[in-house]
Amino acid sequence: MIKPREKAPELEIQLVNDTTWKLSDQSPKNFTLILFYRGKHCPVCKSQLEELQKKVSKFTERGVNIIAISSDTETVAKATHDEWEIANIPLGYGLSIDEARQWGLFISEGIKDEPELFTEPGLFLLTPDQTVYWESLQSMPFGRPSFNDVLGGIDYILKADYPARGEA
């Protein structure tokens, strides 16, 4: 598990628009928000990402770059991007299970129509120097933080110069 105030692992991921996203190349004003999602098979993920789509401008206004990443294949991720209402969210795919474990994500074995192995949800807020500021990990598809709560937290953090917590 990565603790707050620790450097996040380097992450280089392919995007559905045929470009490569690299964590160390990010230069947000305040934060990078990485949303790890389970994949196209997950209706809760669809709802979450479509909710994020509605709030992209609110994150941008606060100096936050966003990306959503899964372990789905390129074909599945491109279908996700085409079928879900998420046009303004950079969508990464092909996260390896080993990389997911470096981030402390929970891994599940597929049942029914799910992939053989996939990541459970995780949200990371990183400072511009790729230090973990805030993380929220789930072992189930349920109980994810609401984006209104995340935005409210960011507002407080920026106003109060609140430090990262959970490092001890």
Rank of each mutant, 00 (worst) to 15 (best):
K112G: 02
P115W: 14
Q48I: 00
P43M: 06
P90I: 00
S71E: 09
G110L: 00
N17M: 08
A79F: 14
E85W: 10
P121G: 00
I66Y: 06
I89L: 02
L35I: 11
T73A: 14
W103P: 03
I66E: 04
E74R: 04
P43S: 06
H41P: 02
P9G: 13
S96L: 06
I107K: 03
S71A: 15
C42S: 13
A79E: 15
T20F: 12
K29N: 10
P28F: 13
K54M: 12
E109S: 10
W103C: 05
Q102E: 13
G94A: 03
I66C: 05
Q102F: 02
Q53C: 11
A100K: 08
L117N: 04
S24I: 09
R38H: 01
L125Q: 01
E120A: 06
K40F: 07
I34L: 06
T32Q: 05
I69N: 04
W103R: 09
E120G: 05
T20C: 05
H81K: 14
I97V: 12
C45Q: 02
W84R: 08
N65I: 14
G92E: 09
V56S: 13
L123C: 11
Y93K: 03
N65G: 12
V44F: 00
V56W: 09
E51L: 02
S47F: 10
I67P: 04
F59E: 04
Q14P: 07
V76G: 10
K58F: 15
Q14S: 14
L125S: 03
G92Q: 05
N65D: 15
V76C: 09
D98M: 12
S47N: 14
N17D: 15
E120R: 11
K29P: 03
T20N: 07
S108N: 11
L95M: 13
E50L: 07
I67T: 11
W84M: 09
P9R: 14
P121C: 01
L33H: 00
P90N: 02
P115T: 03
D72L: 04
T20K: 11
E51T: 05
D18K: 13
A87I: 04
K22Q: 11
I86G: 03
T60R: 14
S70Y: 15
I69T: 10
A77Y: 01
F106D: 05
L35C: 08
R38W: 00
E109V: 08
F36Q: 02
E10H: 13
V16F: 13
S57Q: 13
E109F: 02
I111S: 08
I13N: 09
I69S: 05
S96I: 06
G63N: 11
D82M: 15
L91A: 09
P28E: 14
D113Y: 09
S96K: 08
D98K: 14
I69M: 07
N88G: 13
K112D: 08
V56N: 10
N17I: 05
L126I: 00
L35N: 12
K112Q: 02
Q102C: 04
D18C: 13
